[in-house]
Amino acid sequence: MNEQISNQELNERLTLIESMMQEGRRTTGRYAWSFVLWGVAYEVAIIGATWLHLVYAWPVTMVLALVATIAGFSTHKTKSHESTAGRAIGSMWTALGASLFLVLFAYGFSGRMHETQIFVAIATAHLGLVNGASGMLLRWRAQFACAIVWWLSSAAACFITAEQSNYLLMADVFLCQILFGIYAMVLEQKRLNKVNCHA
């Protein structure tokens, strides 16, 4: 059959394989909305707790964000396919959520939360860890750059004042959650527009 096949057709087949494999490997892009959601939730919680002095700003916003995330994931049919990388990344984010909820809630209710900097250092270190691992796994430089921002902030939080740490956390959340989430959503949309009938 080879005689009847042109080089153009062979190249088309290679392109088809590549594009389909990219489709199968898509993971984080589908969940970009949750970055934005959590980013907004963090910002609301920081403003509520720091400047409006609302005692329950953190627990209330976090629980609401969690409920919205669960509702969002249940409407996005994520079980339609499963890749090893996708499951690994999903597991990391679930573990991050459990870890942050447990530690920060315990810290908040312990009555020992006198230094906001410690809170910021713990939260940013956790976020650096998961974004770093995900960025390396997906070979996604933008996400790894976010991880570096989180890690640097975690270290910086140990040396700055409580007020500065609040501003730092707000800036990080805006950059690495909201802006990064919007960027990932734009990429996802572009990819969806590009994917038409290859087959």
């Binding site: 590549e18 489709e23 199968g24 339609s80 396919h81 890749s83 499951r87 290859h198 087959a199």
Partner: peptide, 24 residues
Amino acid sequence: LALLSLLATVEEAEFTWLREKTGS
């Protein structure tokens, strides 16, 4: 070929997902 390429990257996939990705 599109189906094999898709299935090469995932552990398993539903019929509906394959239909959506290939547009067939």
